[in-house]
Write a protein that binds this DNA or RNA. Structure first.
Lengths: 332, 332
DNA sequence: TTGTAGGCGTTATCAT
DNA sequence: ATGATAACGCCTACAA
């Protein structure tokens, strides 16, 4: 059917090994020979057969992104960054939803079809997943794990510092009772962000009031319900810090429903800076994470490990920033 | 490293061909033999090597979803449906963003690594893409193309009927000047939905007023700007029909900004019924498309074509429905 | 019902 | 700088 290196070889009058050399960018090919081969290949519309290459190399050009995350907008950004990197580096991005069918993860791992795996929260901290990957010797990288380790590289922002800074900002605005809507507790980022919140309070001599801290699930609906609980308190907060933008959007909706104007009567801030943040009303003050860059960087670190499995895993911390839009204001 | 069919064969005391038979579910294997083989395979933690299989079969277990769509929420649902189907049917879903790097599509096609390709708007109607796929003999399926053809199977809802029904609903509510925000004109669905709108007007003896029809880009921002244009008209519409939910959300935001209450002063309805529709305020009256089911069905039809390239392409029309929430009301 | 021979298209190894 | 030979692990075709 389609041309092989042998076809190209005979068309170019060289041995097929030379064709292989050309297509692998190996040294020791005379320039004239290279050109002859390339012309013949173009003529025959030749492409290397990936299956044959993978078989012989015991390799793969597939990177898997494991998905099981309640926030689609978070995944979207990660996926875009990863897709882009893959397409520029000769890989393909395979997406696998582990929530819908847990066996699919096991299949994926056992099949050995993936050159490497990208993990996002909460899988980045899931001991079963980490050990499965490790015992099958599949290179992987973790995005936003709770803590780093020697097993795999990671990419993150400093969640603790980011949450601390945002909380300090709210304190500087005069807020003294600040509600926190966290993510689920099995997310490392949830714990780190709560720690940052707590540190900021402590630094300002404010007491940590467990009543003001509610656990959401990174969804719009839980943002609403946690906000409802917070506003029903005898002493409700004057500011609410949601651990992602979806929950912040839910918080704004709940306030709006109760006739509480944001930011005039209540300050609400989010985390992530995904699409919804600049699209709701009022636009959201939030912590920006460079999710696309994080994903691209994660793929890069993963590639290093694929190429050299014994290399020491690197741990990158990318910069975050506070995006000040219109959903925050001074305590009134 | 990892076990091969030969290892399993000698462990089970049979020939490797028998192992192959077992793992391909072929007939003519005695039950006792099958069990012996399966036990040995379990023992050795054996899995078929995909690269070898693909090489020999000249096949692949990869299906590509080509992405280049302004509405992430639309893609998300399609992707979820496709991922799920793939994981249940021994395939992997590869996502490829053609907007970020157009060459990636060419590479994908030439490499022949994909068993098939799923196309969504606007690629479903892109002549260059269709002919590239056809000339490379890559099976593909089109989701929501403008019209069907003999080249590839397709899955759609009846956009024309759906848009007609929604428009009729608005007319029944007493609206006479109904604004339409379309998608880009290179989307077949845009044209079909506008046709449905037009038919409904005609059926009610209302005139099609080009002033009331604006072309958006399926984005929140264009929903806003088109609504602004519509509301600035000397005779503004009393209802606006946006061709997707993102634009409807933008329309609501624009109305809100101008102090125009929805639905009391202005009716706004959307299309798709993606996540944002039930999450904004007021919740959106919209046309529901079963996007996940459409994607799963598309994968199914694609598989038929992969298995038998000469089979006549099927064209499925899935049911739509009108979801009546709170963003519509009678003309006031 | 089970087994044997051969080759899919590439890369590795070793030679020239 | 280039070439010959041998795998990689599986499936197809045919034989027993």
């Amino acid at each position: 059917m389609s041309a092989t290196i042998k076809d190209v070889a005979s068309a170019a009058g060289v041995s097929f090994k030379t064709v292989s050399r050309v297509f692998n960018g190996e040294a020791n090919v005379r320039e004239a020979t290279r050109e002859k081969v390339e012309a013949a290949a173009r003529e025959l519309n030749f492409t290397l057969n990936t299956a044959a290459r993978n078989l012989r190399r015991r390799g793969s050009n597939l990177i898997a992104l494991i998905i099981s995350n309640p926030s689609r907008s978070y995944i979207d950004n990660i996926q875009i960054g990863a897709m882009d990197w893959c397409s520029r580096n000769g890989f393909h991005l395979v997406v696998e939803d582990i929530l819908a069918r847990p066996e699919s993860f096991e299949d994926l791992i056992k099949s050995g079809e993936m050159a490497g795996v990208i993990l996002i929260p909460p899988m980045s901290d899931d001991p079963d997943i980490l050990s499965a990957l490790t015992s099958h010797h599949i290179p992987f990288v973790r995005i936003a794990p709770e803590t780093d380790n020697d097993i795999a590289p990671s990419v993150r922002i400093d969640d603790r510092a980011a949450a601390r800074e945002m909380t300090q900002k709210l304190i500087a605005l005069g807020h003294r009772r600040i509600g926190l809507i966290t993510g689920p507790n099995n997310f490392g980022v949830s714990r780190n962000r709560r720690a940052g919140y707590s540190i900021a309070l402590q630094g300002a001599g404010l007491e940590y009031d467990a009543e003001l801290v509610r656990e959401g699930a990174f969804s719009y609906a839980t943002g609403q319900s946690c906000t409802a609980q917070l506003l029903d308190l005898a002493h409700p907060p004057t500011a609410i810090f949601a651990s992602n933008d979806d929950m912040a959007a839910g918080a704004i909706a709940e306030s709006y429903k109760r006739g509480i104007a944001v930011p005039h009567k209540l300050t609400i801030v989010g985390y992530d800076d995904v699409a919804v943040a600049s699209v709701i009303s009022p636009p959201l003050t939030t912590v920006r994470q460079p999710l696309k860059d994080m994903a691209a960087r994660a793929a890069e670190l993963l590639l290093e490990r694929i190429r050299d499995r014994d290399s020491a895993p690197k741990h990158d911390v990318l910069p975050h920033s506070l995006i000040l839009r219109a959903s925050h204001g001074p305590r009134t």
